[in-house]
Simulated assay, not measured.
Amino acid sequence: MAKKESKEMSFMDHLEDLRWLLVRSTLVVIGIAGGCYFIDDFIFDTIIFGPKDPSFITYRFFCEVTHFFGVDGTYACAQEFNFKIQNQNVSGQFSMYLWTLVSAGFVIGFPYILWEVWKFISPALYEKERKMAGRFIVVSSILFFIGVLFGYYVIAPLSINFFATFNVSKEVENLFTIDSYVSVIKTSIIASGLVFELPIIIYFLAKVGMVTPEFLRKYRRFAIVIILILAAIVTPPDIASQIIVSIPIFILYEVSILIAAVVVKNAKTEEQSS
């Protein structure tokens, strides 16, 4: 099969393409961030500070689940969070405001960034593979936004609920800085979205022969350990939260094995038919 381009591109040409990829992606993110200025009340009051409300949907859901199974719901059914959010720097709120809008621009503009990435790697793909651009953008975007929702409705609330209710003594009052609070929300959302791209990453690694289904199955135990460590990093130090976060990541790993198997099988079929 013929590649997209017959001429070889030099290393400097690739760097130039990569530079423009970053420039265009940055401009789009900044442009979307500027548009988010007009809905900043919704972004902050509803989205960012939503998990701060004890009546947030996640807390109500876990509270009902604990009641359904007859488990003590003291931890899950928080009536109020004994903490306040404060700003300690002169430019703290303004800096947080700008970076939050930029983060929103990245999340919303992620499908465009994927499109730019696809254009960058497409010259190295076969004609048949380049026709998968639409599917690549759609599937990758769906996985990313599912991860974003998982981070926002699961990881962030679990973290806030734990740290807001944890107290070594009644003498200590929780006063969280605005930067630390918003950082928990943004990190949970973006990191989770990127983690959910695992099947796509495995697909391309399998295409270039760097990963095989046998390799993934062989080192499944190590993957489980890494997943548990990752879950322990992004969640509060309690077993229930770690298990809740680990389950979807492990499912993604198993899906990645199936994807790698399909890629290898298709590659062998093409070699036999050629």
Rank of each mutant, 00 (worst) to 15 (best):
E8W: 00
S10P: 00
F11C: 00
L15P: 01
E16V: 09
D17L: 07
R24E: 14
V28N: 04
G31D: 13
I32H: 11
G35Y: 10
C36T: 12
C36F: 15
C36K: 02
Y37I: 03
I39Y: 13
I39K: 06
I39V: 15
F42G: 03
F44K: 12
T46K: 15
I48P: 13
F49E: 09
P51R: 08
T58K: 05
R60I: 11
E64N: 14
T66Y: 15
H67K: 15
F68L: 11
F69A: 05
G70C: 04
D72W: 02
G73I: 03
G73N: 14
C77I: 11
A78G: 14
E80S: 14
E80K: 11
N82G: 14
Q86N: 10
Q88T: 15
N89Q: 10
S91C: 01
S91L: 10
S91K: 01
S95I: 13
S95Q: 08
T100A: 03
T100P: 04
V107D: 04
G109W: 08
F110H: 09
P111F: 05
P111K: 02
L114R: 03
L114Q: 05
K119V: 11
S122H: 03
S122W: 05
L125H: 05
Y126R: 11
K128E: 13
E129H: 06
R130F: 01
K131A: 08
A133N: 04
R135S: 14
S140Y: 08
I142L: 15
I142S: 14
I142F: 14
I146S: 13
V148C: 11
G151M: 08
Y153W: 09
Y153H: 06
L158K: 02
L158E: 09
S159F: 15
I160E: 05
F163T: 07
F163Y: 15
T165P: 07
V168A: 14
V168L: 15
S169K: 09
E171I: 13
V172H: 08
E173D: 13
T177W: 02
S192A: 10
G193A: 05
L194P: 06
L198I: 04
P199M: 04
I200L: 07
I201L: 15
Y203R: 09
Y203T: 02
F204Y: 13
L205E: 02
V208G: 05
V208H: 03
G209S: 05
M210Y: 12
T212M: 01
T212K: 07
F215T: 07
F215L: 14
L216N: 00
K218M: 08
K218I: 01
Y219M: 01
V225N: 06
I226R: 00
L228N: 05
L228A: 12
I229L: 15
T235W: 07
P237K: 03
D238P: 01
D238N: 12
I239Y: 12
I243M: 06
I244N: 07
Y253M: 06
Y253T: 06
E254D: 05
I257G: 00
V262Y: 04
V263W: 07
V264Y: 03
V264S: 09
K268F: 01
S274F: 11
